[in-house]
Computed example of a mutant assay.
Amino acid sequence: MSRPERPKQFLALTAAETMLQLTAARAHGDAFAAPIVVANAAHADQVETQLAEITASPQAIILEPAGRNTAPAIALAALEADGKAPLLVMPSDHVIADPDAFHAAIHAALPLVEDGWMVTFGITPDSP
Rank of each mutant, 00 (worst) to 15 (best):
L87S: 03
A85F: 11
V47Q: 00
R68Y: 14
E53Q: 12
A71E: 10
L88A: 04
V47L: 04
I74M: 03
A85T: 14
R68T: 15
A66Y: 11
I74A: 01
A77H: 02
R68V: 10
P86N: 11
R68S: 15
Q59H: 14
A85Q: 15
N69S: 15
P91K: 09
A85D: 15
A66L: 09
P91I: 09
G67M: 13
I62R: 04
M90D: 01
S57G: 07
I54N: 01
V38L: 06
S92Y: 02
A73R: 00
N69V: 04
A77Q: 03
P91Q: 13
L51G: 05
R68E: 15
L87Y: 00
A78E: 08
L87N: 01
L63A: 12
L79H: 10
A73S: 14
Q59N: 12
V38E: 02
M90W: 04
S57W: 04
A60I: 09
A60E: 15
P86S: 09
D82S: 12
L63C: 08
A85Y: 10
V89A: 04
P58C: 11
N69Y: 14
A56W: 00
A42I: 05
A81G: 07
I62K: 05
R68F: 15
P58I: 01
E80R: 12
I54T: 03
N69D: 13
A66D: 09
L79V: 05
A56S: 14
A78V: 03
A85K: 15
D45V: 02
T49E: 12
V38Y: 01
A52T: 07
V37I: 07
S57F: 07
I62G: 04
V89I: 13
A42F: 07
P72M: 14
E48F: 01
L51R: 00
T55Q: 10
L76V: 05
A39I: 00
A41M: 08
V37L: 02
E53W: 08
L63R: 13
A44H: 10
V37D: 01
A85M: 14
A77M: 03
L76W: 08
A56N: 06
T49Y: 06
N40R: 07
E80Y: 05
H43R: 06
A56D: 06
M90V: 08
V38C: 03
A39G: 05
S92C: 15
E53M: 04
L88Y: 02
P86Q: 11
K84Y: 11
A73C: 10
Q59L: 13
P58T: 04
A73H: 02
H43A: 10
